Simulated scan of single mutants.
Amino acid sequence: MANINLERRAEIGREKRARTRLQLMTAAKALFSKRPWESVTIDELVREAGVAKGTFYSHFNDLEELAAAVADDLINAFDAMIQPERLSISDPILRIAFGCDAFLRQSLSDRSWALLATRMARSHPRVGLLVRGRLSDDLRDALDKSPQAGLTPELGVEMIIGIVLQVAAAIGDRRFDDHHRPEALRCMLAAIGVGRRDAASIVARVARVRGSVPRDILMGGSPAGGSSSATESA
């Protein structure tokens, strides 16, 4: 009986620790969606989370470590969201366009998520490594099949990420809306050497192969207490 009680106590302790960590992560997402994570203080964070300051240090050494955890969570959730459909696409350029479209649609669905994603991607080196690797593989595959003079996978990845993050940031700031999305995809495709007619065809194909994308899968709901729904268009 004593052993059972000890085991149960340990289990309760682990559950409590997991809940507290989730509180800190949720609070961080809410604050990071409003401004750069470097400007957030630990005092603000624990106040948002409703925990004691000492509790923060039992989970993270500093805010940078917390930011890395948020980044990992963001990457893993986004990757999980798009992989089933992405892996069903054989054309590497279409896979790239699909992934970018999914990112922009999520940004339109939840603008506070867009602000968090773009700010974290720009300020923390761990954000985007998995997606960057997938992009590099897809672009390398595409360039093997159809080489573009002067374009390397490394350069192409930087151009794709740069365009998508800039558009997502504009969406988060409410300067862009859904009718900018197809043209943003066409511009991204043009940057990696796809002709305008082919780019228009690829964007139309993305609309056909795209399935339903869960709107709040990445955040478990809007971190800032609300979300904006995007109007569907091609």
Rank of each mutant, 00 (worst) to 15 (best):
A121M: 05
L104S: 01
R17N: 12
E154W: 03
S109A: 15
D73Q: 12
T152F: 09
K16C: 06
F56L: 11
K53N: 08
R175K: 12
P147H: 04
R21Q: 12
A18Q: 13
R9E: 11
I4M: 11
A77R: 15
V167A: 14
S107G: 06
M25E: 12
A200L: 05
D72S: 11
A142H: 00
S109V: 00
R205W: 04
G13A: 15
V131S: 11
D141T: 07
I192G: 08
V164F: 02
K145W: 02
T41I: 09
R35A: 08
E158W: 01
G225D: 00
I192P: 14
H180W: 02
L135D: 00
G220L: 09
E232H: 10
L129H: 01
A142W: 01
Q166I: 00
P92C: 06
K34F: 00
L22S: 13
A234L: 12
P92Q: 09
R19A: 13
I93E: 04
A18C: 02
N76K: 13
L165T: 03
D173M: 10
V213M: 14
D138A: 14
D173F: 13
I89Y: 12
R105C: 06
L74I: 04
G156R: 02
K16T: 15
I75N: 13
D173N: 13
A30M: 07
L87D: 13
V203G: 06
E64G: 11
E7Y: 09
I161E: 10
Q106A: 03
N5G: 10
Q83L: 13
G150N: 08
A97L: 05
E38R: 15
A191G: 12
Q166T: 14
S229Q: 09
R105A: 02
R132H: 12
R17K: 15
G128K: 02
E64V: 08
A30F: 00
A191E: 00
I75Q: 12
S229N: 05
A191D: 02
L165F: 01
H179C: 01
R95I: 04
E15G: 08
E15D: 05
G211Q: 12
T55C: 10
